[in-house]
Every structure is written in C-alpha cells, then in structure tokens.
Nucleic acid binder design. Structure first.
Lengths: 184, 184, 184, 184
DNA sequence: GATGAATGAGGGTTCATTCAT
DNA sequence: GATGAATGAACCCTCATTCAT
C-alpha cells in the first residue's frame, strides 16, 4: 500500500517471474503459454509485454535472475581456512542440496518437463537398485568394505550420467578407484 | 530396392523414428513440430499418421522401442562370478557410459532440450571447477589422499543433483564419507 | 460364385452404393469420409476410385440411381380410370409413404444429417402439439367438424414448412379453406 | 463509432453469428469452414475463438439464440378467444409462414444444405405437379369439389414427407378423408 | 481387380504478439 | 499501467485423391 510507481512495477515484475517459474516447472517451457503464465499471475497476457520483450526474454531473465549460480559461487567462495576438508565438503554439499531443494521449480525447468521424465526416473531407479544389490553382495562376501551401498550406487550412476549429459564424460576406472581405492 | 511393400513400410517406420529422435533431441519434444519431423524424414506430415496414431503415440513408441532400459537390464543381469568387484564395476559403468554415448539423442530427450540446457551446463561446470580446486588444495596440503580431483568433484556434484532431481536426495554426510573414509 | 468379371464388378459397385448410402445417412454427406464408406463396404478407399470418379460423383450417382423419382413417376403415371378419387389418392399416398419408409436412408441424405436435426424435430413436434390442441378445443366446442386433429395439425404445419423450404410458399388462406370449407 | 469496448464486443459477436448463419445456410454446417465464416465476417479465424469455444459451440449458440422456437411459442400461446377457428388458423399459419420466410437461412440450416437439395426440390416439384394434375382432372370431371388443387397437392405430399421425416408417419386414409370428407 | 503408401490441401484450433482504448 | 480485441503464423491432424505394386 502506498507503494511508489517504481516499487509497484518492481513488485509486479517479480510476481510475473514467480508465476512464470511455477508455470514453466509444471508444464515445461514450451508447454506453458503466455496466457497460462498471465493467468497464474492474475493479469492479462498483454501486460506481460510491458515487463518482458517476449516469452523468450522472459525465460532468459528467469534463468539469469533466478538461477542459483551466484548463490552457488558465494557458497563455494567462502573461506574455509583450517577446518577439516570432509567437514567443509559436507557443509558445502549440504548447502548445495538445500539450494536445489529450495529451487525445485527451477531445477524442473533445467531438466525439462516432458513425458520422458517418468522414463528417466525408471531408468535411474532400476540401475541404482541393481548396482546397489551387487555392491551389497560383495560387501556381504567381505570383498568390499562396509559402506552405504545405496548412496554408492546412486553416486556411480549419477557421475556417469551427468558426465555424459554435460559433455565431459568421467574416467570410469578413476571413478571406481575413487570409491574403492585398492579394490576395497 | 526391390523391397516388398511390407519391408518398405517397416523401413519407413524406422526412418520416421530416427527422424523423430534426432528432431526431439535437437528441439525438445514440445519444440519439435510434426512438420519438423516429417521434413527430417523427407516425407509429408500426413504420412506420419499412417505409422503412428498421434505425436504423443510417436513419443511413446520412441521411448518404448528405442529406450535403452532393456539393454541396461541385460548388462546388469550378467553373471559376474568370481571376478573382483572393482573390475566388474569398471566394466559395468564403462558399458553404461558407452550406452549413453551411443544414445546421446535419446539422453537429450530424457533430460529435456530447452534454452535451459546451456545454463545447466554452466552451473555444473562452475560447481565442478570450484570443488575440484578445493579438493586439489587439500590434497596439496597433504590433508586428503592423492586422487583424481576432477572426477571426485563431478561425482559429488552429480550425486547431489541427481538425488534431488529424482526425488531421492542422498545423505550428504554419507556421500562424503564414501569418497573420503576416515576423513582422507 | 463363378461370377463373370462383369457381374462381379456390377455387384461390387452396388455394394459400394449401399455402403455409401448407409454411411451418408448416418454421418451426413460432408461428415462421411471416403475411408468411412470404404470400411463400411469392406474394401480400401483406393478401390472406390475404380468405380466412381470422385466422392462427388459417388453422391450424384447415388441420387440418380437410388433416387426414387423414377419409382414415383411410375406410381403416379398408372392409369386410374374409373376408380373413386379418394381411393386412388389413398393408394397413391400410401405407396409414396412406403417408398419413403423403404428409403429412409436416402430421405436422411436428402434432409441432411446435422446437429440441427434434433432442433427441427423439436420445432415440428412443438408446433404440431399446440395446433392439435387448438383444433381439438374447437371441435369440442362444436365449431369445427370432428376430425383427426393430430393429422390435421401435422398437415397444416408441413404444408407451410415444405412450401417455404422448396421455394413455393402455399397460400395460407387457401390451405385453411381446403381443410375446413365453409369454416367447418 | 465511439463504441465502448463492451458494445464493440457485443456487436462483433452478433456479426459473427450473422456470418455463421449465412455461411451455414449456403454451404451446410459441415461444409462451411471456420475460415469461411471468418471471411464472411471480415475477421481472422482465430478471433472466432474469443467469442465461441469451438465451431460446435458456435452452431449450438446459433440454434439457441437465433432459433425461432421461442417466437413460435409466443405466436401459438396467444389467446384467441371468440374469433372463428379458420380466421385464427389463417392468422397463425400466416405468422408461421412469415417466420420461416424471415428466417430462410436458419430454415436452410435446419434442413441441411447439400447437393441433395436440388434433388429434393425436383422430387417434391414433380410429385406436386402430377398429383395436382390428377386432382384437377377429377374436379373437372365433377367428382371432387372445386378447390385449389396446387395447394392440395403440396399439402398431401408435404404431410406424408414430413410425417416420415420426423418419425411420426401420418395415417394416409385419415389424411385423404381430412381433405375430401365424404369422398368429395 | 485390389491394395495401401504417399501426397497436398485444408480442417479446427492455439498461441505469441500488438495496439487502440 | 492495464486491458482485451485482433492478428498471422503455426500447430496437430484428416481427408480426397493418386499410383506403384
């Protein structure tokens, strides 16, 4: 109330970005229409064009302003000084994890929202389960050291998949050696 | 040449699936029009409907027939007998890695193909670099054992991200302990 | 069985006309696709074009060959000689009525098969009922001679409607005088 | 000019209904494309969808808002008191006739507008002519009372046809007796 | 004679975008 | 600043028709 013009405009812009993020997360960037977004924001489609040049510009703005790359940089840039590496790592990854959790909608936009999502989940789930089973068997046999096999399976799978996806494949032998140095 | 009608039909169907896969990978499922796919296959859009009931049915067929879940199952189901776990794991993950490499288009479909792709790559890249730097510093300081810090960074990042994405977040402390048992 | 080529062709042609008539009656001429007709005849659409030049030609053929105008002419051309006019008329109209009943599908084609059909039926039904009520009241009051008021209502309504529809409006006063000479 | 937005919208809606009615009357409901209607209204097809949910909804709206059933009911519901039945009937049918004349386009929609139209007109025309000839001959011979034979022919024909069409066939003998009581 | 793969035109409809109000 | 009428292009899909097989 009693907002200045500029404040009001700024506020509206943010609400539009909110609405866009929600809508994109739900229907995918291509699947969400400008009308959908406008409705989610409680305005008419026309108004959107006072704040953003086009739908494409809206997406770009969203990624730029709501992307968590800056937050990530802050996080990682902190000076960790004398504290133990694993403690720092745990804290760091925990913060990253929370960042993702807090920005679930944006993550959804990053990964797209298509029919293929279910298929992906199935793929990853299945692989994880099978690998975890294998690891557990070898732990039981005393070959591998006791460890959280579920996490290990996820990790192995994820590393390979993300490596491929981002165009920087991991060295598989190195990966295995990383988790099980000296074969244990 | 000298193809029977049935062979010709089978061949055309496969070419349409090829074209669809390529087109979806490039423009995303929603972003690719039936016309795009038909053009990529060198036919008229109408023809597509002799082979698939709808665009949606085409996507489903693609995931069902070209999905690599069956191949993955075969891979993992193999009997590994007496061979060392790390050897088996390396082979397994290598095969998985190759599977993904051979099906890059399909992977692109799974992960969605939007404007956000570049942003995702940047995010992962940045995170990876920063974490790798931190790890290298600690290795240099003698705190952590020498290891492939680039792979370790990718792995940590990937595990957290995939965990969030698939709705099964990893236990971060467990993850760190997995890579650096006893803090090393 | 053991049909000559020509017989077989003739037979097929008639079956196609049958199928077309049925399909047109059900879905309307525009609403029925060549595929619909071919399916109803148990053949492929392509074959239809060996027997008829186009869908339009098929419709024309149907109206020409299955139209009952020839039958109607025969009916009316009969020499009625010395028999009483009302007897002849009854016979004639009865035959016409049967002709229409036997060719219900064709009648449906004549009148079109659209959403509007239901509205038309409602319109005619309502009008008929109201007029019949009026007539019955006046008969009861002794003003009009006793007669089949339902038929009279239909008749009056139909005459006006068909008159308009065919572009030859009836003279309404003449019509009333026809049914109730001398105001009775 | 100087129309408010709301007035403009109302006006546009009515013009679209006008255009639809004209176009449907000319080409039939199925035969008229949304593009045809839009062109007739001087707008783009897309605009139609701001005013009507679909082509089907447009047809329904047309029948509901431009149908003359309500007008017909008013007409028939009037209190006719002490006036002679034939006078009332003449007035009533005259009003109905005018209603149809004023709504010729809508009548065309009701009856469908296909290639079959000409065939129907021919059929009715021919039958009418032949019956009228027969009646005239019998009047000349002194068997039937003098009357408007053209109207009588139309009436007889129409009654039978409409009866069949609406699924309530008339009793032919009763019909003849209605027009020529005591065989005259 | 019969099939069915293939086409080109057009169907109804949605959508990003503009602009007068 | 905000609306919503209007557009033009594109969307997915169906259809009448052709022709090699």
């Amino acid at each position: 109330m009693a907002r200045t013009r500029k404040e009001q405009a700024e506020w509206r812009r943010e609400r539009l970005l909110d609405a866009a993020l929600r809508t994109f997360a739900g229907k995918g960037v291509d699947g969400a229409s400008v009308k959908d977004i406008a409705e989610a924001a409680g305005v008419t489609p026309g108004l959107l064009y006072r704040y953003f040049e086009s739908k494409e510009a809206l997406v770009e703005t969203l990624l730029a302003e709501r992307g968590f790359l800056p937050r990530l940089r802050e996080l990682l840039a902190a000076d960790h000084q004398e504290r133990p590496a694993t403690e720092v790592l745990t804290e760091l990854l925990g913060a990253f994890d929370r960042l993702l959790a807090d920005n679930a909608d944006l993550v959804a936009v990053f990964f797209g929202a298509t029919q293929a999502r279910a298929a992906l989940a199935e793929l990853v789930g299945e692989g994880r389960r099978l690998i975890a089973g294998f690891l557990a068997a070898r732990v039981a046999a005393g070959e591998l050291r006791p460890h959280d096999t579920a996490t290990a399976a996820t990790t192995l799978f994820a590393a390979v998949a993300i490596g491929r996806r981002t165009g920087s494949p991991v060295d598989v032998a190195g990966l295995v050696d990383l988790l099980f140095p000296h074969g244990r």
